[in-house]
């Protein structure tokens, strides 16, 4: 939730920044897509400082389900359940697997940008996503599918939209920010394909697990 309302931006030493740039993300049916990750990418952008970011296993779910992580940051996996979890990912940016017993903590440094899909080899329904970002200009769309960047640098930029349910471009849509778009100060991205089914983590059978 804190990511939904947090919009990180940095004022660069560069001068000509444009004031206020609005991005709207719509689903194929025209309805807004909330919680989509919108990021702006360009050459030599200054990255935010690396942080320690928590990702818990709680009540047989990953919590939060979507984590935004600046490149080089550490994700702290904490198992708050009474059962063991076997966290794995075979996504390109982070191929890893480890078991976490109850109460155990494990740190993992995210050194490559991109989407990391996480699963649990024991609890099939557990599913989470880490987005490792090599930019400081990013945020999640609100309920109306909007996000506003207060200032963007004048350099060449590419806009990227990502969400676990997006089918277009295998989960990522990119658009180069043209001069026209910059002048309009706004862009609407409408997805072409229907979204994938909801990714909620609902245990198929929960009463064997005393959490």
């Amino acid at each position: 939730m804190r990511y939904a309302i947090t919009l990180i931006f940095l004022l660069f030493g560069l001068v000509n920044s444009v004031l206020g740039f609005d991005v709207e993300v719509l689903r194929a049916n025209g309805k807004p897509l909330a919680g989509a990750l919108v990021s702006l990418h360009g050459e030599g952008m200054v990255l935010p400082e690396s942080q320690h970011i928590e990702l818990n296993q709680r009540e047989l779910r990953f919590d939060p389900q979507i984590t935004l992580v600046p490149l080089g940051s550490t994700v702290v996996f904490t198992n708050e359940d009474k059962v063991t979890h076997h966290v794995y990912s075979f996504s390109k940016p982070w191929r890893e697997q480890f078991r976490l017993k109850k109460g155990e903590i494990r740190n993992a440094v995210m050194g490559t940008a991109g989407e990391v899909a996480l699963g649990c080899n024991i609890h099939d329904w557990m599913l989470a996503y880490i987005y490792v970002l090599d930019t400081s200009l990013y945020g999640l769309t609100d309920e109306d599918g909007h996000i506003q960047f207060s200032a963007i640098p004048s350099q060449a930029l590419t806009l990227k939209i990502r969400h676990p349910r997006i089918r277009d471009g295998r989960g990522a849509v990119s658009q180069v920010l043209s001069t026209e778009l910059r002048e309009e100060n706004r862009v609407t991205i409408k997805l072409k394909r229907k979204l994938l089914p909801k990714r909620d983590q609902i245990p198929t059978d929960d009463d064997e697990y005393l959490y």
Partner: peptide, 9 residues
């Protein structure tokens, strides 16, 4: 085939 882990339904 874990479709759900690879962005499929």
């Amino acid at each position: 085939n874990l479709g759900k882990m690879a962005g499929r339904e």
